[in-house]
């Protein structure tokens, strides 16, 4: 019937307009969860199929990217036959203080200057991939995908306080990885006008 055809067309138009543009973001999130490009592609496909089939449930006034991330994460958990990930909720404030204490140690032993002289990007990619869940998805959502604590909490299905503690713990673990990276790479702080091996300045 003509009316049904119009409904389908409206659905496809809104899906193309609101959901499809986020495919790169969903892929990045899926990759952070699976740590395997092939698995990530499967998760992206499943995410979009589920999103399309349940498009009638999506509130057009809400955040589509957040909705897709939630579907993506659930698809990942199903693929691993995992239930909710339980983790001890640590004190987020204590994590922040501990990170500062460790940074103080980095300043004192010169590691801070080493890190200031290199491109952190590749090392951070490795550090993020090496993080365990549930810290990895918290860092991916907030720090890479620019989600607020509240949004990340909704996507992950946990309280905001849990997001904070997982996020701060994940960041601290990543910063420790950077220290190991700097030392293993045998980096030396830039000194004088010639600089040092592998050093790059970043604004």
């Amino acid at each position: 019937m003509a009316e049904r055809r119009e409904d389908e067309q409206a659905k496809n138009e809104s899906f193309a307009r609101d959901a499809l543009p986020w495919m790169d973001d969903v892929y990045r999130f899926a990759l952070s969860l699976t740590r395997d490009p092939a698995d990530a592609q499967d998760i992206v496909q499943e995410t979009y199929l589920r999103a399309y089939r349940s498009w009638h449930t999506f509130d057009p006034n809400s955040d589509c990217r957040r909705w897709l991330f939630t579907i993506c994460r659930n698809a990942f958990l199903r693929s691993r036959q995992q239930g909710r990930l339980e983790v001890d909720v640590t004190d987020a404030d204590a994590e922040a203080i501990a990170a500062a204490r460790e940074h103080r140690a980095m300043i004192e032993d010169g590691t801070d200057r080493l890190l200031a002289s290199v491109d952190l990007g590749p090392a951070l990619d490795r550090a993020l991939a090496g993080l365990d869940e549930p810290f990895r998805s918290a860092v991916q959502l907030v720090d890479v995908e620019d989600q607020s604590y509240e949004s990340a909490a909704e996507i992950l299905g946990v309280p905001i306080g849990t997001v904070r503690s997982r996020l701060f713990r994940g960041r601290r673990q990543m910063q420790r990885s950077l220290v190991v990276h700097a030392r293993d790479a045998g980096l030396r702080p830039a000194s004088g006008p010639k600089g040092s091996r592998g050093s790059q300045r970043h604004a």
Binding site: R28, L120, G121, L128, D143, V144, M174, Q175, L178
Partner: peptide, 10 residues
């Protein structure tokens, strides 16, 4: 600086 570099993973 850490957060800026991390965000550039996009």
């Amino acid at each position: 600086r850490f957060l800026t570099a991390l965000n550039e993973a996009r």
